[in-house]
Design a binder for these strands. Structure first.
Lengths: 119, 119
DNA sequence: TTTGATATATAAAAAACTTATATATATATT
DNA sequence: AATATATATATAAGTTTTTTATATATCAAA
């Protein structure tokens, strides 16, 4: 019953994180994984081993800032966007949309394929 | 003037190659790079360093078969799909479309963002 | 003759991701 | 009381994928 690890996720992780933070203001790591799972009906699952390194990298690069809070005796590390993180979020979402359009022009059925599908 | 290397291309290379071969019947490496560049108006550019290893890998995995031909004194290695390659092509294109739908549900502007964009 | 287009290929390095592991608290179940 | 599950972050080892650089070779055009 495991959601098969998605090869297409490669390269989109930063975009997802930046976009969710742009939208939500601030989130903590665990919350991001849950949010992605829910909103995609389980289609996309972020693993912690992938997420945390990405969060640290984005922080290093000056796109994110953090504040730690103790909630119910557990530590939460909230991430939010810096101004340059915000700009990058906008850019990356737009880049992804352009990429998908380019992919559609490759993956759209061409000439002969339609008739085959009609059989 | 270089097309900036596209991070989103990660993980989609095999899908692109399989789909083009499913559509065109047979192609050689160089032809694949040119076709992708043209059809995406330069948006997606496959590098040879990435393409050839992928072609070899797909051949190893039994998805592609090859025939070499000499054309104008130069060697061309034509690739075409095996039956399992054909099935994989169909599967991967469908997987990619599902992935894009999932991504849309993450990247679509939510609640507050629309009004911000309207300012 | 040298540049650009055509054509394939590999090796070294970097980047990204998976899998496994570690730690710790709270709640629900047996 | 013990165990499992959910919450929460983190890192290390290993694999895969991709980038960048390099090598080889023919043909056509400037």
């Amino acid at each position: 019953m495991e959601a098969s690890s998605n090869e297409f996720l490669r390269g989109t992780l930063k975009t997802i994180v930046l976009k969710l933070l742009a939208e939500q203001g601030r989130m903590y790591g665990y919350e991001i994984t849950q949010s992605v799972k829910e909103r995609t009906s389980g289609e996309i699952t972020l693993t912690f081993g992938a997420l945390y390194p990405v969060l640290h990298k984005l922080e290093q690069d000056g796109f994110l800032m953090t504040e730690s809070e103790e909630v119910d005796g557990r530590l939460r590390k909230y991430y939010s966007l810096t101004p340059s993180g915000n700009a990058t979020a906008v850019q990356k979402v737009s880049d992804f949309e352009r990429f998908v359009e380019a992919m559609q022009s490759l993956l759209r059925p061409q000439n002969g394929e339609i008739s085959l599908a009609k059989l």
